[in-house]
Design a protein around this nucleic acid. Structure first.
Lengths: 167, 167
DNA sequence: TTAAACTTTCAATAATTATTGAAAATAAAA
DNA sequence: TTTTATTTTCAATAATTATTGAAAGTTTAA
């Protein structure tokens, strides 16, 4: 397989994985493109490579910057902005984990807690609280694990876990 | 807060969490409804509770059954089908993990591996392979952890992990 | 200053995804 | 059988989400 072909296929694959996890396809593709690029890319470069509009590039690049996984970079002698993705995949993983945790898991935990405030004493209410409690317990545990992941270094995933898994 | 209000709010919350993780909102709501229901529900019950069409109920209930997190149940003297959700949240977590791993993570791992077959020797190709390799490494590790979770009992999440986290 | 280069915004539009509802299929009862 | 209850399917439609592109905004250089 040729390099260019492989790159394209990788960008496509990443885009469709993103879709099934609720991430905008183009955003994932822009990130994938920057990840396999050897040099910083301008908005124009991205427009051309992915055949998308200027507005679309702008929106998605900004979102990636907001997620903390893409940075602006200035190129000497060039007036326009260029963009690069951090090539450290472990950092990428941590950053995405951190953001999704903050944006999606934590707010749900807060709601689950709030809902425990049902002031009824029926069996049904008890059962409901039980379900909520179980849900909170599992969600909190997951949340804690992700916290640990965010703070840990790369070896945490590769070795520390392996130990636990072999038990 | 009253029980009914809390149940509704819970169903809504679960629906919106689902949306941001690429799961159909109605599917999550149907599941949430069954989870907090004290008795098996018929298609009609679900239609009424969530104000959705018969077809929609059918589609989503089947999807939930396909995911292994909802079961059919027969009620004596009733001709129609009823549905229940397993109330064991840990089982739910394991089942969802198992399915998403199988449907989404594993296929991507296969593509990443395939893409390593780039037959070029340039620096650029080397860098690309490096990125792919790193991506595979992290994805494989996550995949392994999820495997462990699927096989483990409830205490794995709650205690075994706590230990690791306190290190 | 002003003009040119570039970025951002956002209403209009397109693409995608979810939902309806009625007809067809299936299963149980008469 | 035939009738009736129930489930399934799927084309049409609605709702949601993503994308365009041109105008407005901003920055830099002359």
């Amino acid at each position: 397989m040729q390099l260019e072909e492989a790159k394209l296929k990788y960008i496509q694959t990443w885009g469709s994985l993103a879709t099934s996890w609720g991430v905008n396809k183009t955003m994932a593709q822009v990130h994938a493109l920057l990840l396999v690029s050897t040099k910083p890319l301008s908005a124009e470069d991205i427009m051309e490579a992915l055949q998308i509009s200027r507005g679309n590039v702008n929106m998605n690049v900004r979102a990636l910057i907001d997620w903390g996984i893409v940075q602006k970079e200035f190129v000497v002698g060039e007036r326009k902005e260029f963009f690069v993705a951090d090539k450290d995949i472990w950092e990428l993983f941590k950053q995405i984990t951190k953001e999704r945790k903050k944006r999606e898991i934590e707010p749900v935990l807060r709601v689950l807690e709030e809902l425990q405030q049902v002031d009824e004493n029926s069996d049904e209410a008890a059962q409901f609280k039980q379900v909520l409690g179980d849900l909170s317990k599992v969600t909190t545990s997951v949340n804690n694990i992700l916290d640990k992941a965010i703070k840990a270094d790369e070896h945490w995933l590769l070795s520390n876990f392996t130990k636990v898994m072999k038990k």
